[in-house]
């Protein structure tokens, strides 16, 4: 009886858990994005001072509840030599957020290469993808159309998966909420 009720309780109250990877080059703003997301969606969460975010060479974890879903974010280090660890997380991912530094035109090609390699992985086939053009609060940054153009030859590889490109400024929290709820999807 206890087992039955316990099972029923779990069934009624359990939330579906989803794992979401946050990827992108170092300094794109992945950890800042994660901190802002935690701050805005978690009651009682007092985030760290965003100006004190240091380079991630490992794994940051954030868990938030949105409606009936529990989202587990895995924020991985983005340095080139750490990108070899990314694919070890793909098999368990339900979604990917790829963060681009819109102010770093010099490394846009490098970011595109890392992105292309990521979406080429079979383990991520069909996994929804959110691309964030970060640091839109900075003057003279690249716009979303600029970035789409730079990444345009990745379009065939995106294939059937849902993909949304969204401007954001993780530091100020701009667009965090609408990003999380998507809006419309498009294939580039």
């Amino acid at each position: 009886m206890y087992t039955l009720l316990s099972g029923l309780y779990k069934y009624m109250f359990q939330k579906d858990e989803y794992c979401i990877l946050i990827l992108g080059l170092d300094n794109a703003g992945k950890t800042t994005f994660l901190e802002q997301t935690k701050t805005r969606f978690s009651k009682n969460y007092k985030g760290m001072n965003l100006s004190k975010i240091t380079t991630t060479v490992g794994l940051n974890i954030g868990t938030i509840d949105v409606g009936k879903a529990r989202l587990m974010f895995w924020d991985l280090g983005g340095q080139e030599e750490l990108q070899s660890l990314w694919d070890k997380y793909y098999a368990e991912s339900h979604g990917v957020i790829y963060v681009i530094d819109s102010t770093d035109e010099e490394r846009l090609g490098e970011s595109k290469n890392a992105f292309e390699k990521m979406i080429s992985s079979e383990a991520l086939e069909g996994v929804p993808l959110l691309v964030l053009a970060n640091k839109q609060d900075v003057e003279n940054c690249l716009s979303v159309p600029d970035i789409k153009t730079a990444f345009s030859d990745c379009a065939p590889k995106i294939g059937k998966r849902d993909c949304l490109v969204q401007p954001c400024a993780a530091l100020s929290g701009y667009v965090i909420c609408s990003s999380d709820y998507g809006g419309y999807t498009e294939n580039n």
Binding site: V57, G58, Q79, E81, L85
Partner: peptide, 23 residues
């Protein structure tokens, strides 16, 4: 050995239940 090589060699990516950082 560089930190990234150690991270890979020690299979740190297996850690999923907590934050980790190699410095």
């Amino acid at each position: 050995a560089p930190a990234s090589e150690i991270a890979e060699g020690l299979n740190l990516h297996i850690i999923r239940d907590r934050m980790w950082q190699i410095q």
